[in-house]
Nucleic acid binder design. Structure first.
Lengths: 114, 114
DNA sequence: GTAAAACTTGACATCCGTGTAAGGGTCAAG
DNA sequence: CTTGACCCTTACACGGATGTCAAGTTTTAC
């Protein structure tokens, strides 16, 4: 599939897909004329990238953390620690968001027009 | 309390506190020489601001949503709708983060050095 | 009264994923 | 072929909270 198809399938803009590749997060092959082609599996990979970005990981971290193009999955304690630390961060973030949601819910209650 | 005390009490930098005031989120009185003074209640208010910022609300939205300096709480259907919409956004964000946390947990499992 | 610490305003810098525009090349259908 | 849709690279801009520097003023401690 070409970049437009992948974009349509994932909701990521073509710009973003090129950026992911530039950051070493997403691989593509090129046709004779230089256009990118992706395997079907790219859809899931982009979805994963989007999730991790939304969770607050930056592309360098994702690059470290995902088995990728030039970066075969190497099992090191360091990598496991890194992942665990990100996991803890996200878990804390979820807890904080719960608190914030409660605050917002309280405001909604308070501001509701009777 | 002065800005340094409030900063220490909340973890927000003095820069951020001035920014909150500039955005109409935080009030202060000034001493003769022009230095800001805050009531004790400012600590809680800053904490609230920080939560809402962390939840992805921008300062304009927070200004709309918080009963504030120049912006007395006016109960309008519009405001309730706005808050509700933010509440839904945060709720969805929490759901998405749960999914991402599971993904990260899976990676941790997978990369763990045996 | 003097020095140090804290504060003021203003301006510019940073991050980083994404948008967007320019100028040109590729590909498939008619 | 030609045409229109799609894609390429390069480069610059943005948002928005926060950092940081500069030059000057206020407050506090001694």
């Amino acid at each position: 599939m070409r970049i437009g198809d992948l974009s349509a399938a994932t909701g990521a803009s073509a710009r973003s897909l090129r950026y992911y590749e530039e950051q070493g997060l997403l691989a593509s092959t090129r046709s004779g004329g230089g256009q990118r082609h992706y395997p079907e599996t790219a859809v899931e990979r982009v979805s994963l990238i989007q999730s991790l970005l939304a969770a607050g990981l930056n592309s360098a971290t994702i690059q470290d953390v995902l088995p990728c193009i030039s970066n075969e999955a190497i099992r090191t304690p360091w990598l496991a620690d890194r992942l665990t630390s990100e996991l803890e961060r996200v878990t804390k973030q979820i807890q904080d968001l719960h608190r914030t949601r409660d605050i917002l819910a309280g405001l909604v209650e308070q501001y509701r027009v009777p």
